[in-house]
């Protein structure tokens, strides 16, 4: 009894503490899964986090808790013919979403990956060459031409200028599946599909088991193996609880279609920055939105459709 009261006393002391970080961490131990929290608890968590981040990063940080808007189902489309592989989307995402940006191994996290693929072709002189030889996994092309084999190192392409003559680029990130394998495997049910589409993570409940990373067929998830490196001046102070708020060590993170922007009606950061306009975002329930019109009018495919994950990220070409 004595020890219990002592514990409660110390708990009270911790909560009243002036140190925003200590107070937050203590309170977070008693916090529910985000989906089970009442509005009052959400508001409390929000105030707590705003106080913590503001003191940690030395500027006014807001943590949004806006829920899904009725009549909105977010969808994304990407024109693979247009992509030039300039990687501006990758860096826009990092600027927006407060990823770790250190230099040591595992400290640099990027959610979008731009795959570089060699162009395949059917030509007469290659018809009898048989199956491709060489290294790597064949991801494109056809059985007669070794073009389309991709080594992991190729994604780190760094030519003088893009697009290169012999390459095609295919950016991948979280596909926001309607039947997400990552959600199925999560043992603590911290990752789930929001009502307006995106699959999100309650970072506080993530135990860092990385089951979701293994389950995701699109290599979309990243783990904070180290304490994230996020300089104060580069931190984006407009955040969302399920979105880009600074993460802690040992949690998994991934693209969430810039929830802090899209819940307020803005385009995601990668869409706004694409210099060739290959990236399109819109409301699938609105027949006038660009994504609905693309689905109606263009040649559309989904990545690894045979896995029945039903992505809401569509690739198209003119």
């Amino acid at each position: 009894m004595l020890s219990a009261s002592a514990l409660m006393g110390s708990a009270a002391l911790m909560t009243m503490s002036d140190d925003a970080k200590a107070a937050t961490e203590w309170a977070e131990h008693f916090q529910k899964n985000y989906r089970l929290m009442t509005d009052a608890e959400k508001a409390e968590a929000r105030t707590r986090l705003e106080r913590r981040y503001s003191s940690e990063y030395g500027k006014k940080v807001t943590v949004d808790t806006t829920g899904p808007q009725p009549g909105v189902l977010m969808g994304y489309a990407l024109n693979v013919r247009k992509c030039i592989g300039c990687r501006r989307c990758v860096h826009a995402c990092v600027e927006e979403n407060n990823q770790s940006r250190g230099t040591r191994p595992g400290e640099k996290i990027e959610w979008i990956q731009v795959l570089r693929m060699e162009r395949g072709e059917f030509s007469k002189d290659k018809m009898n060459q048989g199956y491709p030889e060489g290294l790597g996994i064949q991801v494109g092309g056809n059985a007669y031409t070794p073009a389309g084999q991709v080594l992991e190192g190729q994604y780190r392409y760094e030519p003088e200028a893009v697009p290169e003559k012999d390459a095609t680029y295919m950016p991948i990130a979280c596909m926001q599946c309607e039947k997400p394998p990552c959600v199925k495997v999560c043992p603590v049910r911290t990752t789930y599909r929001e009502a307006d589409g995106p699959v999100v993570i309650d970072y506080n409940w993530c135990i860092g088991c990385r089951m979701c990373m293994g389950a995701c067929p699109y290599w979309a998830r990243r783990i904070n193996l180290t304490t994230p490196v996020l300089p104060k001046e580069e931190m984006n102070p407009v955040t969302h609880y399920l979105g880009n708020r600074p993460r802690m060590r040992g949690v998994v993170e991934k693209c969430h279609w810039c929830l802090q922007r899209t819940r307020q009606g803005r385009y995601p950061a990668c869409v706004e920055v694409c210099p060739v306009g290959a990236r399109k975002f819109g409301n699938l329930l609105d027949p006038e939105s660009e994504v609905s019109l693309i689905l109606a009018r263009k040649n559309v495919f989904r990545l690894k459709a045979e896995l029945n994950t039903f992505p809401k990220f569509f690739y198209f070409y003119d």
Binding site: I84, V90, G153, E160, A161
Partner: peptide
């Protein structure tokens, strides 16, 4: 190429642990 004037790309991602350079494999 593909209708666009070529531009310089942004920096590539970090190499996976153990990979010395992009041509390693």
């Amino acid at each position: 190429n593909k209708g666009f004037v070529q531009i310089a790309p942004e920096a590539p991602p970090q190499l996976p642990k153990g990979m010395k350079d992009a041509k390693y494999e």
